[in-house]
Amino acid sequence: MTPYDPGADVIEVQRAPIPGPVRGTYRAFGETLRGLKTTFARIVEGPSTLQYPEEKTPVYPRFRGRHKLHRFEDTGLEKCVGCSLCAAACPADCIRVVAAENTPENRVSAGERYAAVYEINLSRCIFCGYCEVACPFDAITMGHDYEMSDYTRSDLIFTKEMLLAEPIERTPLRTEGE
């Protein structure tokens, strides 16, 4: 009977040398002490947790948060002329614009028409920022607010008044170099 020959396709596995008594003891105790030092360094370092509701993550200047609608600062007229380009650009189809004519008695926007209804359904919005890009008058921009959770879906439909209102600045802005 010939001894079993595994053949050429069996490759000898490279193994680390089995530690002797001295090296084994060093491994067991030395490495344990090194581990203890590592964990103790974490205590000295202190926690890196951000206590969220009290401390908020600062956002970058180009962070795309909740939308804002703008007015002209000098005249107070709305920038939005109700052209619906943002609604056309929106991939999530979350913007609804109904335009109306400006009259001399009731002048709302600087252009010929204004947005009688301007709604953004934030439960559909994907915060891509295409509306901001599409807008020819910079009337809509993405803000920095990211705390938008609510109890009902209908509360997430933001009307023109809510979007025009100065947002409660709840989000800190990241400083230079942070």
Partner: peptide
């Protein structure tokens, strides 16, 4: 344990 793991 939290402190050892860098949390509160």
């Amino acid at each position: 344990l939290g402190r050892f793991q860098g949390r509160y």
